[in-house]
Simulated scan of single mutants.
Amino acid sequence: MASQSQGIQQLLQAEKRAAEKVAEARKRKNRRLKQAKEEAQAEIEQYRLQREKEFKTKEAAALGSHGNSAVEVDRDTADRMGRIQASYRGNREAVLGELLRRVCDIQPEFHANYRVAG
């Protein structure tokens, strides 16, 4: 009986050691997964920063050329406005005079389609 009891004790100890080994294996697996996740996050962040840098470079190039055209459009608009205002100042008196002359110079006449009823 003692040998049977001793055999049971050995089995229990072996089972305990097996459970400890399984627990250690699970811990190692979890550590490896955590490490792999951290490495993947670092790679993702590095890739994101690289793509963001490329985007900023392309954006600056596009906006730089767009900024130049905006300045050119503003300059052209100011030039046209200046010419329009100068034309207005130069022709204002002549146009007003012609309008007043036409409004005040009344010459009554019959319309071409008017027929005298009678």
Rank of each mutant, 00 (worst) to 15 (best):
M1R: 13
M1G: 07
M1T: 05
S3F: 14
Q4E: 13
Q4S: 07
S5K: 15
Q6Y: 05
Q9A: 11
Q9G: 05
Q9P: 03
Q13E: 10
Q13V: 03
Q13A: 09
E15Q: 09
E15N: 11
K16L: 08
K16E: 11
K16P: 01
R17H: 07
R17P: 00
A18Q: 15
A19R: 12
E20I: 04
V22P: 01
A23I: 09
E24K: 12
A25L: 13
A25F: 08
A25N: 09
R26G: 07
R26E: 15
R26P: 01
K27R: 15
R28P: 00
K29S: 09
K29N: 07
N30Y: 06
N30I: 05
R31T: 05
R32A: 11
L33K: 13
L33T: 06
L33F: 06
Q35D: 06
K37P: 00
E38H: 04
E39G: 00
Q41E: 14
Q41D: 10
A42Q: 10
A42H: 06
E43I: 04
E43Q: 14
E43M: 06
E43A: 08
I44R: 12
E45Q: 05
Q46E: 10
Y47D: 12
Y47G: 03
R48F: 02
L49P: 00
L49T: 02
Q50D: 08
R51K: 14
R51P: 00
E52R: 00
E52I: 03
E52C: 02
E52M: 03
F55D: 01
T57L: 10
T57Y: 04
T57Q: 13
K58N: 10
A60P: 01
A61F: 05
L63I: 07
L63E: 15
G64E: 07
S65Y: 12
H66R: 14
H66C: 09
G67W: 09
G67D: 14
G67Y: 10
N68G: 07
N68T: 13
A70F: 14
V71E: 13
V71R: 14
E72W: 06
D74I: 08
R75A: 13
D76M: 11
T77W: 14
A78I: 13
A78C: 11
A78Y: 12
D79S: 13
D79I: 13
M81T: 04
R83D: 01
R83S: 02
R83Q: 06
Q85H: 04
A86T: 03
S87W: 01
Y88G: 00
G90M: 02
G90H: 02
N91L: 03
R92D: 01
E93N: 05
A94S: 07
A94I: 04
V95D: 00
V95Q: 01
G97A: 09
E98C: 01
L100T: 07
L100G: 02
L100W: 09
R102S: 07
V103P: 01
C104M: 15
C104N: 15
D105W: 08
E109L: 11
E109H: 13
H111Q: 11
A112W: 12
A112K: 15
A112D: 13
A112Y: 11
N113A: 11
R115D: 06
A117P: 05
